[in-house]
Design a protein around this nucleic acid. Sequence first.
DNA 1: CATAATTAGGCACGCAGTGCCAAAACGAAG
DNA 2: CTTCGTTTTGGCACTGCGTGCCTAATTATG
Lengths: 243, 243
Amino acid sequence: MEEPGGSERGRAGKPARRHVVAAAVRLFDGAGYEATTMDGIAAASGVSRRSLFRHFGSKEDILFAEHDELFETVTRYLEATPGDDPAATVCAAARMVFQAYVDVPEITVPRYRLVRAVPRLRDREIAMTARYQGAFSRYLARGETTGPRVLAGEALAASVIAAHNHVLRSWLHDPDQPVPWARFDRAMEFVTRSLGAMLRSSGQTAAAGESPRDTVLVAVYPSSTGGTDVLRRVSEALGEGPG
Amino acid sequence: MEEPGGSERGRAGKPARRHVVAAAVRLFDGAGYEATTMDGIAAASGVSRRSLFRHFGSKEDILFAEHDELFETVTRYLEATPGDDPAATVCAAARMVFQAYVDVPEITVPRYRLVRAVPRLRDREIAMTARYQGAFSRYLARGETTGPRVLAGEALAASVIAAHNHVLRSWLHDPDQPVPWARFDRAMEFVTRSLGAMLRSSGQTAAAGESPRDTVLVAVYPSSTGGTDVLRRVSEALGEGPG
DNA sequence: CATAATTAGGCACGCAGTGCCAAAACGAAG
DNA sequence: CTTCGTTTTGGCACTGCGTGCCTAATTATG
């Protein structure tokens, strides 16, 4: 029964944890999530049932244990990064999450299968991504609790999460394909392009005065603005920026 | 012949359902969610424990029962609405959800308190909104399963949900205030303005050919595009549209 | 080696959720 | 009103998650 420090030596930290997670994933994958009991996981991993609950709290949490650690890493990253370019920072954070997924396909791929099959786990996964979204929103709001900037931040956070999930899902469907980093970056650029500019000056014209020269140009006008007026404003904006 | 999880049975005219929900909310509010047992709800509402599970499936589902009905209403609305202006349709659907919330504050307000206090219920609420987001994404994708339009649709759906939640939360904090319909519509306009146009022709030039005359004009170009080239393209796009 | 502190294991309990079967309400003939 | 078939409801027992409590093992410390 007792096998202390014998078989699987992962790396520094807690190898026992990983060992339990691997055993649980194997059982879930084989017999199904609902059919696998905590007693079964305890027997397969060599840990007592009581200790399982002590360390992971619940059956679901065994699957999402390292996801929690990742979330803490990301939040620490956000706290440590000054808000020079909040949109870019949030995209970088999303990139960290994406990287963490593709780094351990032996965990994330079977988990994805389970998440799609079991509604309870699906809700749990969604709740996890919602936590990221909340952290992103808070970072983008930068202390403000009201005003249009908050809305813009929440919309951008939601879009960044959506874009992340979009690319991640496509990779999870085909984990043998090369990791689509380019598609990921393009997706991030897509959402940043439209909503990121709104963050700076929320609402009317985003290009005038502070056009981002090495990324893109975004021009937004109310429909009430006449066509010639739009053309004039674009011309002005381009006149200030470089060619 | 019982249906596990199938929570819709009586369509209209089931006062017993509402009665049970009201009793449960009262108990949750008084003694806390965890401390309230199904036996207690059964005793307080006058139905047997077994029938509680039969009709609602789980303890959580008692709180979110009518939320499920609302979701079906919304999906039916989407299915019945042709995709003339998908972004506007999705915003209208979000408006239906918002309306359903503010229509029954005696349910939604105490539920909001519970959701904020109990992590389990919070996850459930998030999962509910995710279902809406999925339905919106599917509607915006219009059958396509790949390509940039899908990404744009998912980002827009996520933003619409975020905007909806943003305004809804502010009202839930102060339900005695008048319902902020204007703020809701402005929030929807905000996210539609930036991402909605992307939906039509995703990525490069959004205005050419089918400029939305009664909403907004959004023009997006890569930074590599020369300024004069941008000006020329905008001019072309405006030449086709109205002045 | 002795002792205090931390950690794991064993045990029992509460409660959500389910399957099964019996009792009751319902509805349509006769 | 009675009788039969259907549908709904209630009662009971059972599985399994999650927890509190206590004891045993392990480790740290003097």
